[in-house]
Amino acid sequence: MNSLVHQRCRVYTTEKVTIRILEEWCKGCEICVDVCKKHCLAMDILGKVKVVNVEACNKCLLCDVLCPDFAIAIE
């Protein structure tokens, strides 16, 4: 539902889903990591979110809707 196509994003993609992460805007609050029931996301050593298991994503959109910083998008 959200698209970050215009931005410099890190893109993770499978046939089912595309996850875009805008590291520049991620403030490292970890909300997305905590609400993801499929454990697709984790924090990197710089405190930014990264996708660790794109295959597991079931497109529940919780991370997309609850990221306060417009830094993650599920398509």
Partner: peptide
């Protein structure tokens, strides 16, 4: 701030 609900 980091984690602030206002962005939501």
């Amino acid at each position: 701030c980091k984690g602030c609900g206002n962005g939501i």
